[in-house]
Design a binder for these strands. Structure first.
Lengths: 204, 204
DNA sequence: TTCTCGGTGATACGGTTGTATCAGATTTCG
DNA sequence: CGAAATCTGATACAACCGTATCACCGAGAA
């Protein structure tokens, strides 16, 4: 058992090179050779640690998901303590929006994977497809809590509202990536809708 | 001047073959040879009518946009006469949502182009990028009209609301394409938000 | 008829892709 | 020490890509 180098570190180095290329040039530009060059290693090494390209693609996607999760937990924590439902919802949604460098990177890279998943639905199975569903039900729970606090009108359906908000945030992210508007404009649109949702007194 | 065949018809035949492949297998599978086979013509013919692949890609994208426009005008017309603001807004948004076969096709194909545009922003310039902006301001106008009719609370900002609704619809479309939910569920979410927006009496 | 030219087929070229193979390091253990 | 295991470099392979070239066909004009 002789491990001269740290395998996990090498895998990380290569996978993040893939993510960097997917971010800046798109996944179609991320060939094995280009990834190797970006990671500063030989083609053989990439093949050694990831026997096939699919394996590399999947591993990198998993790492990307982990990065997003870390970011989200950080933003929720930064939303203040004790956390209010509105603070949590705002944190989660605006954290996904491509407003700063990190979220731009994550969102762009996810977008690069999007069409790949569309053409190969099997990828969605291997990856945690249940992830957005969990996020959605978590948001719904926060909205329900806000309703009991009187911060959200009781007439709203929590699940439908949460799904709509998440979809709107994703759509806004796409428009930012597409250059239709910048991150601040998208955030303004989202905030306007959150203001409309969370109105403590109906007549203000 | 001897045109034995109708050029425009041939170009349509080839461009629609490209769109068909982009829909079913994604754009990365749409090589010149595959497109030629799908259209039932020789590779040389594709080259003859579209001197380069970019030209074919752009032409097909323009045709796709035209198809969407036709569909939208049809749906607006079917929204009833005289048209109410809510009817128009509902028609436009639900027309974009991938609920039937045609909209699934159009949405999937647009999604196939999406990452291409992201990695090559120059394509967005040639294509009508102003198109979604126009749609957004049109929606805003309808919302403003609804406000004057008392169907939408006056506190709402028409532009921000319109942008949010369009983004939500796009996001819902993405989730349908990704297999997270079906078209009817997406429509239910959208309808719930439209119900919330268009409430004639604030206390119902 | 002969010339001309728009339309078409077959095929080739250089480049890139993912993957495989073979040889040579370097290190740890029997 | 030597042998086995782990790691790495160079290179080859078949397949595919977009594009270009060359020859040819068939119809209208002279």
């Amino acid at each position: 058992m002789s491990t001269r180098v740290d395998h996990e570190q090498r895998r990380t180095q290569i996978a993040e090179a893939l993510l960097r290329i997917a971010d800046t040039q798109g996944l179609q530009a991320a060939s094995m050779r280009v990834v190797a060059a970006e990671a500063g290693v030989s083609l053989r090494l990439v093949q050694y640690y990831f026997h096939t390209k699919d394996e590399l693609l999947m591993d990198a996607l998993a790492r990307l998901g982990a990065q997003l999760q870390v970011r989200m937990q950080k933003w929720i924590a930064a939303a203040g303590s004790p956390p209010t439902p509105r603070g949590i919802v705002t944190a989660i949604l605006s954290c996904i929006l491509p407003t700063d460098a990190e979220s731009r990177r994550i969102t762009r890279t996810y977008a690069a994977y999007y069409t790949l998943v569309l053409s190969e639905p099997r990828l969605a199975e291997q990856h945690g497809t249940t992830y957005p569903d969990m996020l959605e039900s978590f948001l719904a729970k926060q909205i329900r809590a806000a309703q009991q606090l009187g911060e959200v009108p009781a007439g709203r359906d929590p699940e439908l509202t949460a799904a709509g908000l998440l979809a709107m945030t994703n759509g806004l992210g796409s428009s930012v990536l597409g250059g239709q508007r910048d991150g601040e404009a998208a955030l303004a649109i989202l905030t306007h809708h959150l203001d409309e949702l969370f109105r403590t007194s109906p007549a203000v």
